[in-house]
Design a protein around this nucleic acid. Structure first.
Length: 837
RNA sequence: GCGGGGAUGGCGAAACUGGUAGACGCAAGGGACUUAAAAUCCCUUGGGGGCGACCCCGUCCGGGUUCGAGUCCCGGUCCCUGCACCA
């Protein structure tokens, strides 16, 4: 044990590099960061979104997030919890693969190197990670269970295959999820995305839409994240309404004209179902529009129009998503057919147009140009009638519509709507849907904009989807005992535009015997989406050492759901939604006892540098290594937390790190030079307890910047007038600082004579009595303007405060006589209102 | 277009349920120590006026509520961010 050092050689500064190396070594050796997952009491699981291990190494944004999480974890540990803080790597995916292609090295070689580099960087940052629980999604021991997960969904009918129009990136030569398409361009390379039709595996996340939405209300998450998920799920209440196609037989061509019996006529009667949220405007529906891909288009198109319709369908079938960008230029063609508006009984023309999407609702709409901007534009372009059926309070049924009137608040009333005239919009909506339902022409419906999750990727670098196709037996799941289906090592893993994965070129791999009949069969050659890898990793961490199970029931019960999850808002929708979905599925099949994986989630902010977003092209990317080397991990960590509110991020400024380092230097010399004996200064003790309170309140709220400011303030008080500190004054400060600057805290803690790690000490407790002031400053205002302050006892009465204020000449001169009114906020402020107010 | 967040000194930022705006830090200026520099320590630092005690103005802009507004309400400007023809 080192002797307590009060030696004069104690420098103004300390050797951060040597000291951090010493403690990182000590932590490793003593297993300080090990978490006893089996027996630890009061478990607390603190999770950070695991990084993609890029070749460039750890990004400062990663470290910002991890440090924030680490502080939280270390604090919880000092509150007596057994804290589990694991780390892993999200190493599959197109990003790694593209990089591997670029440098011409197989990702199987690249990724381990990147991971080693990440681990080294993470260790140098002094995170409280239990490395025995490290995982990588690319490890067959991990993706064995990713494949197993797929089989669980397949077994329950939640995974299915369908041919689907998918987003195809001609540059990356792969299918993209809707989410990876940004304004019609590939999220990664910016190429224009095309549409292709391929057989794909999907997960039925839409079955869970309502529940995914409902449960949000029960979660302690950043509000912005919940809102993003709500919008993504996109619930809307409306109605399906059936429109009967008019005179179908006569226009359907010679073959059908021959049919004459009424039975036959009934059989070919055709309805078009539309979805609308504005059933109240049905009297204003002057035409129908179908998506060009709508299956009924074929049947209702008349011979006269067929050529134009086919031409338009051909043109829009392969439409780029770029064309979907909101545009005022509406295009479309008439099918030649009419449908009856069930409200008015009038025939209205049926058009097709690409502004109606097949994927949403029924792929068909009733167009109400008077009250919908898109329909209005279309009607203008095609010279279709525009009818007013909703009027604002000042308007009549005749007021012309120069622009679409889209208000649906209740001051607006229905007009030109037969017996519904005069009704407020909401009531009209209800009544009209009811009326349609009675006549079997409609029913209330809820739609979600969430689509099923396409998990197929025609790529190399991912877990193969564990399915085998047999000519005799069809689609056969790989038996669980045969997992993992290992990704073969191949030299040529370039994607091509055949529409299939590079694995489809590896015959020795995909040719297998059918597990059922033993006949010749073929493996699925697509791999799964990276989001599947990351949708369950938090379940794997506690059980990562177990090879016979994806996640051990007892460990899962003990550690999950995750207590605190921290990550970037860029994953607020997809990763977080998919994780929730997978957890719900596992819950429903009885594999986990909860149906939400993350009790608490906080989105951290982003760090910009000198006011600009960091990017390679700007050359303003912060490489943590350099700063850690120059200033020490403790200073770097503390600075990152100090530069702004954790949930907002902030501006990284090189020169400001010096301030934090100076703080740690001062802490060092104050502690090293502190004396054991001496009289405690009441003012310092008071400040200490206020600081303890502030820091203990701020850390759980992730208000790290103000917690650090409070500690700085306290140290300034301790050092006022170059006084020598007492051990009793600085020892608690070492503990307060420990979550932020763990290495220096350990060293000082040891020098103060402690044998065990500071992280096994109890975080200092706040004592309200010791924090109480005996004299406080109260602001005095006259008519709301601050004119001075008074020093009074905290419990002084209003009269006492008033008397003290009137003794102050500066204040008194603004109060000519007796104040007409006095407002006294105990301990804060006294406001004197004079008569003329 | 729709949703979310934001605008406070030269800079990063504080400010409890409305209650002394600018804590903490950076930068800058002055001083101490030093042969000198670095480091360290002390002082000053929102703008304007005054020798001074003090006074006036000030939280994106315009209104409002209130004894009192950075904070609440109405209207507007700008910035960042997510989704984008979802009927």
């Amino acid at each position: 044990m080192m002797e307590r050092s009060t030696a004069p050689e104690a420098a103004d500064t300390y050797d951060a590099a040597a000291l951090e190396k010493k403690w990182q070594g000590r932590w490793d050796k003593n297993g300080t960061n090990h978490c006893d997952v089996a027996f630890g009491s009061r478990p607390y699981y603190t999770l950070m979104m695991f990084p993609y291990p890029s070749a460039e190494g750890l990004h400062v944004g990663n470290l910002f997030a991890f440090t924030g999480n680490d502080i939280h974890g270390r604090f919880q540990r000092m509150q007596g919890h057994t804290v589990f803080e694991p780390m892993g790597y999200d190493a599959f995916g197109i990003h790694s693969e593209n990089y591997a292609l670029k440098v011409g090295v197989n990702p199987m070689e690249l990724i381990p190197k990147n991971i080693d580099n990440f681990r080294r960087q993470l260790k140098s940052a002094g995170l409280m990670i239990d490395w025995r629980h490290e995982l990588s999604t690319t490890d067959p021991k991990y993706y064995k269970w990713t494949q197993w997960l797929f089989l669980q969904l397949l077994k329950r009918g939640l995974a299915y295959k369908k041919k689907a129009g998918v987003n195809w990136c001609p540059n990356d030569k792969t299918v993209l999820a809707n989410e990876q398409v940004i304004a019609g361009e590939c999220e990664r390379c910016g190429a224009k995305v095309e549409q292709r039709s391929l057989e794909q595996w999907f997960f039925r996340i839409t079955d869970y839409a309502a529940r995914l939405l409902e449960n949000l209300n029960t979660l302690d998450w950043s509000e912005s994240t919940k809102t993003a998920q709500r919008n993504w799920i996109g619930r809307s209440e409306g109605a399906d309404i059936r429109f009967r196609v008019v005179d179908f037989l006569e226009i359907a061509g010679a073959a059908t004209v021959m049919r004459t019996s009424t039975a036959e006529m009934a059989a070919v009667e055709t309805d078009i179902t539309v979805f609308t949220t504005r059933a109240d405007t049905i009297f204003g529906a002057t035409y129908l529009v179908l998506a060009p891909e709508h299956p009924l288009v074929e049947r209702i198109t008349t011979d006269d129009e067929r050529e134009r319709v086919n031409e338009y369908r051909a043109r829009t079938a392969n439409r780029d998503l770029v064309a979907r960008k909101v545009t005022k230029d509406k295009t479309g063609v008439f099918t030649g057919s009419y449908a009856t508006n069930p409200a008015t009984g009038e025939p209205i023309p049926i058009w097709i147009a690409d502004y109606v999407l097949m994927e949403y609702g029924t792929g068909a709409i009733m167009a109400v140009p008077g009250h919908d901007a898109r329909d209005f534009e279309f009607a203008k372009a095609m010279a279709l009638p525009i009818v007013r059926v909703v009027a604002a309070p000042g308007d009549s049924d005749k007021t012309p519509l120069k622009a679409p009137f889209e208000d649906s608040d209740d001051p607006a009333r229905l007009v030109n709507s037969g017996r519904f005239n005069g009704m407020p919009v909401s009531k009209g909506k209800q009544e009209i849907v009811g009326w349609l339902e009675e006549h079997d022409r409609g029913r209330p419906v809820v739609n979600f904009r969430l689509h099923d999750w396409c998990i197929s990727r025609q790529r190399y670098w991912g877990p193969p989807i564990p399915v085998i196709y047999c000519d005799k037996c069809g689609t056969v799941p790989v038996p669980e005992k045969d997992l993992p289906v290992e990704l073969p090592r191949v030299n040529d893993f370039r994607p091509d535009d055949s529409g299939v994965s590079p694995l489809a070129r590896v015959e020795s791999w995909y040719r297998v015997a059918c597990p059922t009949c033993g006949g010749q069969a073929r493996r699925e050659t697509d791999v799964s989406d990276t989001f599947l890898d990351s949708s369950w990793y938090f379940l794997r961490y506690p059980s990562v050492q177990l090879q016979n199970v994806a996640f051990d029931p007892a460990l899962t019960q003990k550690w999950l759901p995750v207590n605190s999850y921290i990550g970037g808002n860029e994953h607020a929708v997809l990763h977080m939604l998919y994780s929730r979905f997978i957890t719900m599925v596992l819950h429903d099949v009885g594999l986990v006892p909860f149906d939400e994986p993350f009790k608490q989630f906080r989105a951290h902010g982003t760090i910009v540098r000198d006011g600009a977003k960091m990017s390679k092209s700007r050359g303003n990317v912060v490489i943590p290594d350099q700063y850690i080397e120059q200033w020490g991990a403790d200073s770097f960590r503390t600075y990152l937390m100090f530069l702004g509110p954790f949930e907002e991020g902030g501006d990284f400024q090189d020169r400001s790190i010096a301030g934090v380092r100076r703080f740690l230097d001062r802490l060092w010399s104050s502690v090293v030079e502190a004396k054991r004996d001496g009289k405690a200064d009441a003012a310092v003790v008071r400040k200490l307890h206020k600081t303890i309170r502030k820091v203990s309140e701020d850390i759980p709220k992730l208000n790290y910047n103000t917690a650090i400011a409070a500690m700085m303030e306290y140290l300034n008080v301790v050092r006022t007038g170059a006084r020598q500190a007492l051990v009793s004054e600085v020892e608690p400060l070492v503990q307060l600082v420990a979550p932020f600057a763990p290495h220096i805290a350990e060293e000082l803690w040891e020098r103060l004579g402690h044998k065990n790690t500071v992280f096994d000490s109890n975080f200092p407790a706040f004592d309200a009595k010791l924090a109480a002031d005996d004299i406080i400053t109260v602001a005095v205002q006259v008519n709301g303007k601050t004119r001075g302050t008074i020093q009074v006892a905290p419990d002084v009465s209003q009269d006492g405060a008033l008397a003290a204020a009137m003794r102050d000449e500066t204040i008194a001169k603004f109060v000519p006589g007796k104040p007409a009114r006095v407002i006294y906020v105990r301990g804060r402020l006294l406001n004197l209102v004079t008569g003329d107010q």
